[in-house]
């Protein structure tokens, strides 16, 4: 994602930094906080709300 494709910013729930999000961001998409590098899940759009992403579970995979 480049700066010119980011249309919205939302606060990281962990460190409070503003996280830039692309226009086509989807609910359940995972983004990485540019402030603290934690993985965040997009839990809502319009406006965007971020939450800490769930930890990988035992049965995740292909």
């Amino acid at each position: 994602m480049t700066l010119d494709t980011m249309t919205e910013r939302a606060a990281c729930p962990d460190c409070g930094a503003g996280v830039g999000l692309a226009a086509d961001t989807e609910v359940t998409e995972i983004v990485v906080c540019t402030g603290c590098a934690v993985e965040l899940e997009v839990v809502a759009v319009g406006p965007v709300t971020l939450a800490l992403a769930p930890e990988i579970e035992e049965d995740w995979g292909e």
Partner: peptide, 27 residues
């Protein structure tokens, strides 16, 4: 139906969109 919208799901959404197909993304 997805747990996470990853790179793959984004590409799939775009592919359906190019075909004029409506998609609901279900968590």
């Amino acid at each position: 139906i997805a747990s996470r919208v990853r790179f793959e799901e984004k590409l799939l959404l775009e592919a359906f969109r190019r075909r004029g197909v409506a998609v609901v993304v279900i968590d």
